[in-house]
Design a protein around this nucleic acid. Structure first.
Lengths: 198, 198, 198, 198
DNA sequence: GATGAATGAGATTTCATTCAT
DNA sequence: CATGAATGAAATCTCATTCAT
């Protein structure tokens, strides 16, 4: 019964909050934080506008929620990659994941990167530095892989790899050309392959 | 003729227009296009708000002006670099210029790149693709240098170099760490040095 | 009967209602009726928001409850003062009670007076005149004391005394100076002392 | 011509700001600061809502403007009273002025006093203490008169007189009875008359 | 052209009140 | 009765754009 007729408790509450976070992440990625209105997110989540404020006290909290949604996705991704046998496979899996998002990147850029760029223009509210946290998570994981590969300066290599991803996403987006993702992705894969383990 | 005919009024007008463009480029870089108001730009340019509309009919035109101002800067830069004896020197000069802007990049990112990311979120008005034009100018020039160096796939290498720049700017910005510019800049210089001319 | 029949449920309910009234009186005194939200009162009373409406159908009823709470306090006070031997002692006891609240008055004014001032701005809902009722109770009691003292025009003297209290509370509040209560309180005591009984 | 057809400069600008201040003072007096909306004031001043913000950046600034309007009225009043030959006449003139406002006081209380009571409930924004400034101006002037009359403790007497005014206004308002103003006004006049100059 | 002022559409936010369980 | 969640009507505030002189 409760199965066929979901109660407010099972369907609502947490579920609605989750829906709002997902909607925020998606809409903010496509429209940008500044151009996105609460109404946009509410509509996407199929929630009445006034109700949004029951879950998030301000628009900034919703933007922060979008960011933490990206963080969640990132954590999911790396936990999946961690199942791969070796660091080289994991790094290549990461790159393949990026290339798999070629069309989305060509249209809207990297979700985290573009949000970081936009939030970085602020100078109050604390959100301006928040995006850095997510970026750092990725950098740390990538550096771990390079370290496991026995590479010197794993942190530097992580900057190079993640930077390359951000750069290729931005160019693919600016040129509206998913091919950039393919070409640069292939180059990165080749680079990873060329590294000899210690 | 235009010289002899230029009155104080027309010169003043031109000067105002120029001031507005420069202010737009600067303020939009620091605050982002969406968060910047016409009044912000007018104030920075020391032009009365109501007067702005004699030079730019809409806010979008002002944003386009900011973009063309970046284009102008880019053209100035490459015309200076073109005076250097060889393509390798020119590419290294370009990279050194990027690193020279390390603090600005760490605080606000690459002016063109962040604007491209922001405008890319739009889907009407034409501005969404405009930023690509400026990026393409840079890509073309860089490809020319690689070509002159006798490198195969100069366009691909250009994507790699410019992408690396966009990526390192974004990371420096997200992490608020100018050191990223130094490290990655050094790596790019070393890469250029390692290429053997044909 | 009601004693033996009172279950934990009904006692709990009554307790909640009482808690809500006390919270309303307190919070409304400190924040003003208009700035106080139902949620503020619910929180102070430790009652879930949605539950408030089982005890008070509207916010106005809660404000009325705050007023009646002040009325209850007033009744308690005069019933205690009535135990004093003579009218002069009772009036002086009243004044001493006022001065005893000096710090509260300097911070938030007289609970009834400030609420009367706020509600007096309304012109519908009936609450606008309600505060007058409480004021009248005090005036009547004070007049009774003056009458018992054999003073002519006891109602007029009551207006003077209660008016002096309201005035000194308001000034103490506006100037944030509890000393006003001391000084004017002493003057009123001296005045009462100076009256010779008939 | 400019006479028959007032220009925006002569009619607008300052005049509109003035109109808004007067409307704010009036409407806030009648409705209270909290219940008054920007739209209420805009309507009373015959100004479009959006335009209000050209003159006052926030609602709080409008409330502050209402307060300063009361301050202006007070300054006008005392400067008129200052033309009277002696301090006794001036004080009596002040009281007569109060009594002259009997109906307004009975309906809405003293403009400054009720605003002070309402703003005193706030604890941030600075407006909470602002009303005290206006009260102090009156107190100082009244004390000056008592001093000129050769009375000891002129500041204390000022507190008593102004407090009496605030108290009678509040009671007249709470009881909706202008007669309170007459009776207490007469008492105060008699008091002033009873003081013998030094 | 130049300018302060004006305008209205829309965005965020608050909250009394109601609903579903 | 109890309760967290829901709802919609307002209110404040912002700003691109236009107007009047």
């Amino acid at each position: 019964m409760t199965d066929s007729k979901e109660t407010a408790r099972t369907r609502g509450a947490g579920a609605k909050r989750r829906r709002l976070m997902e909607a925020a992440a998606d809409v903010v990625h496509r429209q940008g934080a500044e151009r996105t209105t609460i109404a946009d997110i509410a509509r996407a989540a199929e929630v009445p506008v006034g109700n949004v404020y029951y879950y998030f006290k301000t628009k900034d909290e919703l933007v922060a929620a979008a960011l933490s949604e990206h963080e969640r996705h990132l954590n999911l991704l790396v936990s999946q990659l961690d199942r791969l046998p070796g660091p080289r496979e994991r790094l290549k899996g990461l790159i393949e994941g990026w290339v798999g998002q070629r069309d989305l990147a060509a249209r809207y850029g990297c979700p985290t990167g573009t949000l970081a760029a936009e939030l970085g223009k602020r100078d109050e509210g604390g959100l301006d530095v928040e995006a850095g946290r997510v970026v750092r998570i990725l950098l740390r994981w990538v550096a771990d892989q390079f370290r496991e590969l026995g590479q010197p300066d794993p942190e530097g290599l992580a900057l190079t790899l993640v930077g390359a991803y951000q750069g290729m996403s931005l160019l693919a987006n600016a040129l509206r050309d998913p091919g950039v993702m393919d070409r640069e992705g292939a180059r990165l894969i080749a680079w990873i392959d060329s590294l000899h383990a210690a």
